[in-house]
Amino acid sequence: MSKRPPKLWPWQVALALFVFAAWWGLTATHILSPFFFGEPLVVLQRIVQWFASGSIWPHLGVTLLETLLAFVLGTVLGVAIGLWLALAPVASALADPYIKAANAMPRVILAPIFSVWFGLGIASKVALGVTLVFFIVFFNVYQGIREVSPVILANARMLGANRRQLLRHIYLPSATAWVFSSLHTSVGMAFVGAVVGEYLGSAKGVGYLILQAEGTFDINSVFAGILVLTAFALLLDALVTLTERRLLKWRPPTIAETL
């Protein structure tokens, strides 16, 4: 406790400024073509303009709504089906090859089908996000249930737990821990599902903005869109970390965290 970790953030900010300056220098001197690589100052201007005029909000709102819905639906489905299959060995053996196949398939490919089924609105993007989130959560819950310590289970049974109480007091908390360990990935995947879905066909959303800009060779807006997306992805990730800290305080810190 005597040694304080060295402050890293000034260096991290400096690194960002350096990259930005290099980008600016290389494009301003035409070593890199501004047509393909954009101009950082114009990109910044574009972002400020979007937020100042408020024109970005409806798009961001749609993207975040799609992310949220995909995340919640995918997680609920993943937990429910994961719990069910982990506790029903016959059903699980039956479903096993299909689950493996569905997981191995590059699911982004489903986007056009979802567009046909659910139209160009929010639903098709949510559907894509759900297929991405579902498998991450599902496999983690399945694993979590399978790896519950048999001694802890036996202990709970000896203390009088019936099947329902085992589910509530042993299986669910154990699965929750595994779901949380995958939360960062699944929130990220929900976001990917939303943006990719928009990019492949939509009338609103940040992915749509980028698609539009690309159509008119407005590379600065494409970069601006990417930066805004990245910033919000980081924000979502920070939210997840915060929730995790609150809900998983029973877990021993990992070695990396104690260093």
């Binding site: 310590s149 802890i152 036996a154 202990n155 009088g160």
Partner: peptide, 16 residues
């Protein structure tokens, strides 16, 4: 065995 309490050899506390 509903009449018995069992103290296990290995760790059996609920970590959460």
């Amino acid at each position: 065995n509903r009449r018995a309490g069992y103290m296990f050899q290995t760790d059996a506390l609920l970590p959460w």
